[in-house]
Design a protein around this nucleic acid. Sequence first.
DNA 1: AAGTATTTCGACCCTAAAGTCAATTAAAGA
DNA 2: TCTTTAATTGACTTTAGGGTCGAAATACTT
Lengths: 200, 200
Amino acid sequence: MTTINSEQPFNREVQYAAKRRAVIRSAAGAFRRRGYHNTSMVQIAKSLGLSKAALYYYVKSKEEILFECHVMMYDAMDTAVLSVRCKGDNGLEKLKRLYGAFAALMTRDGLALLADIDSLKGDFQLAVLARRGKIERAVNRIVERGMKDGSIKKADPRITVFFFMGALNWLNVWYEPDGRMSGEKITEMFVEQMSEGIAS
Amino acid sequence: MTTINSEQPFNREVQYAAKRRAVIRSAAGAFRRRGYHNTSMVQIAKSLGLSKAALYYYVKSKEEILFECHVMMYDAMDTAVLSVRCKGDNGLEKLKRLYGAFAALMTRDGLALLADIDSLKGDFQLAVLARRGKIERAVNRIVERGMKDGSIKKADPRITVFFFMGALNWLNVWYEPDGRMSGEKITEMFVEQMSEGIAS
DNA sequence: AAGTATTTCGACCCTAAAGTCAATTAAAGA
DNA sequence: TCTTTAATTGACTTTAGGGTCGAAATACTT
């Protein structure tokens, strides 16, 4: 049973999981570029050199792929929130680092913050809404903290957050990895722009 | 032929055009709320008290509806650009008024700046891309002008425009006409936020 | 090499929803 | 009231694309 292989990275489960992740990531890119409904399972399959049927060996449904795309992004965002929380900067500094981390997820890691939440039904949608709410609250908390400690100018935190998170979302739509401007540069400029708009 | 009726607003052509516009507007709202692909022709029809077949008396296809939604918005934006151009303010003031006008189109007039451009094929898509480009260039020009006259701080104008236009786009997603905050208030705060981020 | 488990595929099924049409109803004009 | 044209419909056709299945291929184990 438990041979030496199960300790190595190339046992069955690990490979299965890796391929599954590849499916999700590839689909995420296609969804970002063309949208969920304009991307067929056949297209996703072909871009991986597979047939459509093979896809269903790794995934239960197209909706599940979309769900996992969201989960992947929110996992990464949660991590970013965690990594920012501990350090002892003021609100603005925290927010700048967090915002930069978010932007980097898109420009560097190829993740996408998909808006397509209405294409998810029932529990899938509820779960994603819950995670989005969690992130939103975390960002709100940092902004409020910044308003208290005087590093961020006072305003309605919800609108402030909607504003610069909206800008980030739009990045999904127009950003092309091979564009003339590098992801790092864009990230940097976004942080700058956000920060200039809210610093007191 | 040309009876007195054709001078009145209730002749045939005018009514036809009005109903057609009603179809587009109603669909635009549904597209904004649930997305293009999550809205069926039957839903659009029922929300107007019509059958699906009747819809096709006013419209050639679902894609045409989406196209007209875009056109309606870009017409309104073009008008806003025109109305801002003549007056002799500096770049920042022009931009503030334009941005406010854009936001008002969404919060007051129920128009939507739909992102769903990939659901349009061929000439439809080309036409919309052309109009989007035109608006983008107009906004860019104002920003550049503002950077020249010193009212807007120097930076890459393209990124700057993407940034605050993205925020505007995101408004489509979260704004609900019956929400706790009024459209006027939101518009005002958006202008403020944008302006703070770019004024020199 | 044989046997077993995993992975992949071609061909098919099924359904939601776009789109059509002949027939009916409502409205306008005489 | 009769005629003509506009507006609307129920019932139908079509199709894209998600999802299934049993068989074939490939990879692993002994």
